[in-house]
Design a protein around this nucleic acid. Structure first.
Lengths: 190, 190, 190, 190
DNA sequence: TATGAATGAGGATTCATTCAT
DNA sequence: AATGAATGAATCCTCATTCAT
């Protein structure tokens, strides 16, 4: 994760990964089918964790606005967990090869599993928004999918901003994000 | 641009690029120092265009809310220009090598120029927001840089959504974006 | 061919092949899909040549015994052509990977083409033998396929013997083979 | 033996060998210096067995033709022993690395021992033929080494034929070989 | 003695880049 | 100016071998 985050998938070598783990090149292939498998495994882990955490948090939560805030808080927590680097953030952005280019069946399945987890998160958010709209708690002039994308994008770039190098005009902290993002959600509340 | 967008920087070969341009592999290097140079040139072109278009649109525009809407409209126009594919979108996400890894001085300069253009856009947006806040037109409970990141992120993911494959829960069109995004901006107006 | 013959397929590296050809490693892959493709191409070339030469020689040949002698003479000519090394001989013995292990469709087709050419030679020999048996010129107490295998094996090992290192009890020359092999064929004539 | 026969030396892994033996990878190296050592050990075993069996059979055999038949019968027995696969046959064909490439003295010695056993078989056959020629039982128009190679090659390919896949024009059985091969020997009897 | 996790040398392959034509 | 054949650096992956347990 560290290596991919620091160098990007393509500039990271298997040797780099092994070295970071304090192991030898060959050992990486003892645990992963290929370099791509390492990436896919990480991605799958990320999305699964997101969904698991959300499931726990949302159990029993009735208020759609609170639920929405909780979901995006999960996202922030996970992205910020590693502390000093935007590990997940950079990994999530990596362009993956087309599904049909994947040689092994196992890898194809992994990529499908990732897509499934991503869809699950999407579905979670959309359900909350639609429920909120039906309860008259969330404004209905915005499509649920549009709102979901806006919130997701805003959330992402806010976090990325935390790790941007100086000189890019970012002066806020993790705390600022929390408050402002909740204000954003409230802007769509009724 | 098409090739990078379709395959991603690393999966695109110089041969692909040349073929798309109806030229031969060697010719690419007659006009570009390297493959990376092609990408950097494209990126620089993108950001320069963004800033140029903004400069034109904003000349004489007094209303900060209208100005903000115009700036993000520019972004959308450019990203959507190619019509049937998210060319710029994918290109913009490509992980670039670290500045210090770049061998040639020319490439380093180009990357710096890109950063300059990106900062210029950031400055443009921030100026509008701060002016709006001073004029009492934009709410001051949100930092200007936080608002800028939120708007930028929302804008990006909305557009990416347009190109996502079916099954990802995207049902909106380019028109939906326009209205919803302006509503988002208005949510921060006073 | 020289490299495969000298080192064997697996002990020969692509670099060796390139060096022998006075070219660079990468150039091998400009003309061949893979190292295996080099081998398959050579094998296909060999079997095609065998069949072509036979077709020419046998046109108009009525005598089955003369025809048989001609076919095996072709085999000898080709194996001995390179002069100072048993190029084809060693290449022909190389164990090939199973058809289904082959990654590319092109390689699979090449291997099938080789099998086709081999079958064609087998068919050529068998036809001659059967015709000879029907004409009462070749003894019928031996199955045509048995005789074909015996003649083929004898032919092969005779030639291999020519290239065996001293100390293996080989004292004959290429001329001795010709006479003795024809005597072998005559042993089955009526 | 089974593994080498099924996959070929280079496509067989030590893990395969261990698995077939119901042991673990590491155990192979407890009994053999290296993978090549396994192969050489098998080869040496084969040739030693051949010579031992021949020594027993030939003790007291006066008739050179009967002796020749016995020697090649031994060869057939051994090659066909495994029953359903051409184990020895494929192993015998494996291209070995050049003697001087062998790292360990032990391996070099083993390879020399194999060569010694091969020479011993050659000598056995040649002695029989020469004795037969001196006794006027075997025709003298063929050199003893030429006859030995012809018989050996014929014998080999006949047996290989038994294991060839269908579609290669092989229709005979192990019994057909016996009779036909003896007829071949008789063809050189006086 | 048996194991199997860890190792790293070895080699095939890719593809950006060069340069003679 | 355009080409594309040739190059070789870069790197993934395999698997024989080692060795601590």
């Amino acid at each position: 994760m560290k290596v991919f985050a620091a160098k990007g998938y393509h500039y990271a070598t298997v040797e780099d990964i092994a070295a970071e783990a304090g192991a030898a090149k060959g050992s990486v292939h003892a645990y992963f089918e290929s370099k791509l498998d390492v990436l896919l495994t990480l991605l799958l882990m990320f999305w699964k964790t997101i969904n698991t955490m959300n499931a726990e948090k949302l159990a029993g939560e009735q208020d759609p606005l609170a639920a929405l805030k909780a979901v995006f808080a999960t996202f922030r927590e996970l992205l910020l967990k590693s502390g000093d680097s935007l590990c997940w953030g950079r990994i999530l952005q990596e362009g993956l090869p087309q599904l049909h280019t994947l040689k092994s069946r196992d890898l194809r399945n992994k990529q499908l599993a990732i897509a499934r987890q991503q869809r699950r998160l999407v579905h979670t958010i959309d359900s909350i928004i639609r429920a909120g709209q039906q309860q008259g708690r969330i404004c209905t002039t915005v499509r649920h999918d549009v709102l979901r994308q806006m919130l997701g994008g805003a959330s992402q770039l806010l976090i990325y901003g935390l790790f941007m190098k100086s000189g890019t005009g970012i002066g806020y902290s993790a705390q600022d994000i929390q408050a402002s993002f909740n204000q954003l959600i409230d802007a769509f509340a009724l």
